[in-house]
């Protein structure tokens, strides 16, 4: 018997099982080795790297967020939560946070939407499907700063074709000078760089929807548009949620190279993201305490994001 899919989507509750995450229900192996020292020997390299290059710096970040260090690093005084209150009440930080939020929303939305559109089309065409797939996904391997470098060529004041194109509509684009124009270039380049990952996940999600489900939907629901929104879209929702987290993480952390290149490493009054500000205050501004406090705030943010992610994964386990 074929599954029944009414157009209102009532039956579209079972999601395709795509396993994205590693930590699923903690099942243990039934048979295991017993050895007093061997497991520790196997774990030693990983644990020592984690201790030296992860736990130590993380603890250091938390510690120095409570201290005020003089610019030459000779002395530091305990200041309690001063660094945090200073950060959270500064108008500059609020401006950067606001930009980061807008930037993240735009990058996430456009890269997800465009990738979904392309994946749905690539899933449909029979001929040349794999050629399209290759041509649409290879940008995954391009480094963010390399994407940024090509971007600033296309947006260049003197030679950039995109600037000429915008001029046709009376838009005098000035990247690096005008706040809005610079943000615009950053968003476009970041979206370009992120489409491939989303495309790969959406396409494999679509291909995971079984043929029988699709055929059933084809019979029950004649309108392609409605079929997409009532059957395909809900089935892709778990992939979409997962990608949402991945994209927010990307917009926060992995766009550093793009932003640094677009600003030609001289931010001035241009928009920067929170992560870029951590770097800026720490390495250029020599404000160790402030930079650390910002790091800790970002840690909290990532922590919350991870919890949300795990909630979603837990729910996903029930689907399978």
């Amino acid at each position: 018997m074929r599954p029944h899919f009414p157009c209102d989507g009532r039956c579209a509750g079972s999601a395709p099982h795509i396993c994205h995450l590693h930590v699923r229900g903690d099942t243990m192996k039934k048979v295991q080795f017993n050895s007093r020292w061997m497991p520790y020997a196997f774990l030693l390299p990983q644990l020592s790297i984690v201790a030296i290059f992860f736990l130590w710096p993380a603890a250091e970040a938390v510690r120095s967020s409570f201290y005020l260090e003089d610019p030459f690093g000779f002395s530091s005084t305990f200041v309690g939560f001063d660094n945090f209150t200073d950060t959270l009440t500064s108008s500059n930080y609020a401006r950067v946070a606001q930009f980061t939020a807008v930037f993240t929303v735009l990058v996430t939305f456009f890269s997800l939407a465009l990738a979904l559109l392309l994946a749905v089309k690539a899933d449909k065409v029979l001929r040349a499907g794999s050629t399209y797939k290759t041509l649409l996904m290879w940008v995954y391997a391009v480094a963010p700063p390399v994407a940024g470098l090509i971007g600033i060529l296309l947006f260049d004041q003197h030679v950039g074709p995109l600037v000429d194109f915008a001029a046709l509509f009376g838009w005098k684009m000035q990247i690096g000078v005008n706040y809005f124009d610079t943000s615009f270039a950053m968003v476009v380049i970041s979206v370009w760089k992120q489409i491939p990952v989303n495309f790969i996940f959406f396409l494999s999600g679509l291909q995971g929807i079984s043929r029988s489900v699709q055929e059933a939907a084809n019979i029950d629901c004649r309108s392609g548009f409605r079929r997409f929104w009532t059957v395909t879209f809900p089935l892709l929702a778990p992939t979409g949620f997962f990608l949402l987290i991945i994209n927010v993480t990307y917009a926060f952390f992995d766009t550093f190279g793009i932003i640094d290149v677009v600003l030609k490493t001289e931010p001035g009054n241009n928009p920067v993201t929170l992560v870029y500000k951590v770097y800026l205050d720490g390495f250029r501004g020599n404000d160790l305490g402030g930079s650390s406090a910002q790091s800790v705030l970002l840690m909290l943010f990532v922590f919350i994001l991870t919890i949300i992610q795990f909630r979603l994964i837990e729910r996903r386990v029930h689907y399978s």
């Binding site: 984690v50 250091e60 952390f253 992560v275 951590v278 770097y279 840690m299 990532v302």
Partner: peptide
Amino acid sequence: CTLLLPLEVRILP
């Protein structure tokens, strides 16, 4: 735990 903090966040220490 290491999954929680990207290098960018703890870059200075």
